[in-house]
Every structure is written in structure tokens, then in C-alpha cells.
Design a binder for these strands. Structure first.
Length: 211
DNA sequence: CGCACGATGCTCT
DNA sequence: GAGCATCGTGCGC
């Protein structure tokens, strides 16, 4: 199957793209191995939206948001975590879609290692996340948050910020979900623009960060 | 299960 | 100097 093309990233406005990315698969082919997961939760950030990093002006941090659709925007948050976005809209306009959760499909052991957990085993999984090397991480908790999936997928600001999804080792493939219900809510963890209904997720999917 | 809180460092004001 | 598009722990139920 072929990855999503420039046309796909360009033809939708940001709110629509955020919805169309649900069900698509994010794939990272790294030196350590390939990891992949189905996008099950997204949020849109528009240029006239006070929660958007590009709301005020172009800066060193948000520069990637002003690139062409299909550009990757990675930023650091709370001094210790990173989140990944898919840039959308016209070049020169700062808009993007935050990837908030993935349903892991490939390279699950590698994901768990990157998250700081030991080898995965069907029996060994614990219901709670424990910072002990020998315990495994419940699959449900591997990619059910924006910073968790960045770490699990091996995405980094140094390697990926400002790069294109059309070339390189990070790509998105078309939706594999036949039919699904989508839920729309307000976004999580923001104070500005908190009432805007710009969050979308696959209804009933257990890998979503929160209902 | 749910809620409260502290960690931690960069960016922009 | 304030404010973060978060996460994991610890505690109570």
C-alpha cells in the first residue's frame, strides 16, 4: 500500500484533515526497527485559534507549522515531553493536527523498550504502569497520549521536526478502519480556546487517551 | 477506578 | 518570570 500523498494533506482544511487522519497508520522505520500504530485521536489547531502555537507569529519553535501540508511539527512540552503534529493548510499559514493517541500495530516490544519498560510478554503485562524494568506495560498504555506515542515511536525533535511525511522514515498510510463512529469534543489540557470542539477520536476505541 | 500533585526546562513576554 | 497541546505516582474508595 502507498503512503498518503501531498494531495491528501493539501485538499482538506485543518478540521477536516484532523478527522480524515483517524484510522490512518503512522509508521516509523528506524535503525532499531519499525513501529506503527493506527491514529485513533487527533486535535486541530487553527491559525485564528488562541491555543495554536502559531496564533501570534512565526518563531523559531513554531516555524515548522508554517511549512507545506504534510510537514512534521515536533515541540517540547513541560520541559520533558514531546508532541507531534501534522502540518496542514497552505504554506505560510500556521495550522496543524496534533496526534493524541495510537493503537499499536507493529513493533510493540520496541515501543515498550523506548517507553522504559522491559520485554513484553502476554502473561507479564500489568494493569498499572510501573517504572520497573522487568515488568511489562499494558498495551493500552503504550501510545494512549501525545507524549507517550512520540516516545514509543522513536520520534524526536532533532530528527523529525520540519521534515516531510512524503519523504524520509516517517510516513502515514491510508485508513484501515472500514467504518467507525467518530466523537467530537473540546481539546484536552489547554486553557485558551478551551471551548472549541476541535478534538476527534474513534468512538469506543480503547487506545484513546480519555473519553 | 479516579483525582491531585510534582517534575522539569524551554519559549516567549 | 510565567506558562505550558503531559505523565506517572500515590492515595483514597
Amino acid at each position: 500500500m502507498q503512503p498518503l500523498t501531498l494531495d491528501f494533506y493539501q485538499k482538506y482544511d485543518t478540521l477536516t484533515l484532523a478527522q480524515r487522519l483517524l484510522g490512518c497508520t503512522l509508521v516509523h522505520q528506524s535503525q532499531d526497527g519499525t513501529t506503527a500504530g493506527i491514529i485513533v485521536e487527533t486535535e486541530a489547531y487553527l491559525t485564528d485559534d488562541p491555543a495554536c502555537h502559531a496564533y501570534r507569529r512565526k518563531t523559531k519553535r513554531n516555524a515548522a507549522m508554517f511549512g507545506p501540508a504534510g510537514t512534521v511539527y515536533v515541540y517540547q512540552i513541560y520541559g520533558m515531553h514531546y508532541c507531534v503534529n501534522i502540518v496542514s493548510g497552505d504554506e505560510g499559514v500556521g495550522e496543524a493536527v496534533l496526534i493524541r493517541a495510537l493503537e499499536p500495530t507493529e513493533g510493540i516490544e520496541l515501543m515498550e523498550e523506548r517507553r522504559g519498560y522491559g520485554m513484553s510478554s502476554a502473561e507479564g503485562r500489568m494493569s498499572k504502569e510501573k517504572p520497573i524494568r522487568h515488568s511489562a506495560l499494558s498495551l493500552r498504555h503504550v501510545c494512549n497520549g501525545p507524549a507517550k506515542l512520540v516516545k514509543a515511536m522513536g520520534i524526536s525533535i532533532e530528527e523529525h521536526n520540519g521534515t516531510s511525511l512524503l519523504a524520509g522514515n516517517l510516513k502515514i498510510y491510508p485508513s484501515v478502519l472500514e467504518e467507525f463512529e467518530m466523537m467530537t469534543t473540546t481539546r484536552i489540557g489547554i486553557t485558551q480556546g478551551a471551548d472549541l470542539p476541535y478534538r476527534f477520536y474513534v468512538t469506543g476505541n480503547r487506545f484513546v487517551s480519555r473519553k
